[in-house]
Computed example of a mutant assay.
Amino acid sequence: MIQSWLNWKTGLVLMATGIVIAVFFYSQYLSQKLETEERKKVDSWVEAQQTILNSNDGNNLALASKISQENTDIPIIETNEKDSVTGNYLNIDSAAIAANHNYLQQTLQKFRKQHQPIVVVLKEHPYQANKYYYGRSFLQQQIRYYPIVFLLIVALFIALGLLFIQTSYHSRQNQLWAGMAKETAHQLGTPVSSLQGWVAVLKETEAYLPFATEIEKDVNRLQLVTDRFGKIGSTPQLEQKNITEQIAHMVDYMKKRAGNHVSFHFHHPSHDVVTTISPPLFDWVIENLLKNSLDAMEGKGSIEVTLQQQDKKIMIDVTDTGKGIPAKNINKIFQPGFTTRKRGWGLGLTLTRRIIEQYHKGIIYVKWSEPGKGTTFRIVLG
């Protein structure tokens, strides 16, 4: 169990997580250190301001002026003992103040939340004082937000990496299924051709003609399956077809093979519904859905196929009264290899989705399903 987690992917994830955590804590350390230094700078600036106001010593004035002028990045607002702005401020956007008369008050409220003010008592009786509220410098803000920006960049790269891996995986998976389908078609081609020849020989003998006719139907069916597999992975030839006739043909075909305990109902508009499809592949889709419904009903129940046209959208619903699909499996049924039957490869619905989405640019999904009551698959074309 532990060894299964110890691979290079897990190592990369742990390394990336460690780097992000290290950057976050180091940024916080630098931010706190810079905040302490900025507090000292504001203290020095306030003392310099008091010296400029109260001192007559030229040397002290020169030093105080120099200290006062060196602060070019920390924003400061001066208020009186009642927290009213005196009009003395530093490194505040003058254009913003001119455009918004509440800008100073709004900025003052923000500074109150960031730092405790520096208070300079001017008189004890009556009490007079100046308070100096200050905010964060631009550098301080950059350091505080750097971990967030860094985390977003890392998350973006991880998301792009996962998307690339997923796309690459699906591409390889599609190539695998296409290769398997083509190889199956290739392997079936030779015996099917041979069987067609033997059917032609049997037809020449009148006594064998009834048997040859039935065998020919099955051989033609095998040829159709071979053609379908051969089209997987290739660009199919699309044609304008009346899909009402296409669906009706497949419903009739499955009705003859379903037995007397299954009823079929096909609801469709009175006018022809024409769209662009690959007839052999579209027939395969309808056949797969009908077979899926028959398997779900275990030989007894009802299947309804409904064809609707709304503007340019064509919707085909296949509803059965079978055992339904548990909610936990609805997102899995189109995945390769997933099946609830004891026999089968679990490729029917996977190929169905591939045909609809990749070749016909439509969508297929489970519209409704309830265990014990049935399931509705919906195809949307157009």
Rank of each mutant, 00 (worst) to 15 (best):
I2Q: 07
W5L: 11
W8K: 15
L12C: 06
V23L: 07
Y26E: 09
L30C: 05
T36P: 00
T36R: 12
T36L: 06
E37A: 05
R39V: 05
K40G: 08
V42P: 04
D43T: 15
Q49T: 13
D57G: 03
N60G: 04
E81W: 03
E81M: 05
G87P: 02
I92F: 08
D93L: 00
D93V: 01
A95Q: 14
A96P: 00
I97L: 02
A98Q: 13
Q105E: 11
Q105N: 14
Q106N: 15
Q106V: 11
K110I: 04
F111R: 11
H115V: 04
Q116C: 03
I118A: 04
V119R: 15
Y134C: 05
R144M: 05
Y146G: 12
I153T: 14
V154W: 07
A155C: 01
F157P: 00
S168Y: 13
H170L: 12
H170I: 15
S171W: 10
N174I: 08
A178C: 02
P191C: 04
L195V: 06
Q196P: 07
W198M: 09
K203Y: 06
T205F: 13
E206W: 08
A207W: 11
L209N: 09
A212T: 13
D218Y: 12
N220L: 07
R221D: 10
V225W: 05
D227E: 10
K231A: 08
Q237E: 11
E245K: 04
Q246R: 05
D252F: 04
M254D: 08
A258N: 09
N260T: 14
F264Y: 14
H265W: 11
F266P: 07
H267K: 14
D272E: 02
P279S: 01
F282E: 00
D283C: 03
L289H: 10
L290S: 12
L290R: 09
A296L: 09
A296N: 14
M297N: 13
S302F: 07
T306W: 00
L307G: 02
Q309G: 02
Q309W: 01
I314D: 01
D320T: 05
G322N: 09
G324I: 06
T340F: 04
K342R: 12
T350D: 01
R353Y: 01
R354I: 08
E357Y: 05
K361R: 11
K361W: 03
K367R: 13
F377K: 10
R378M: 00
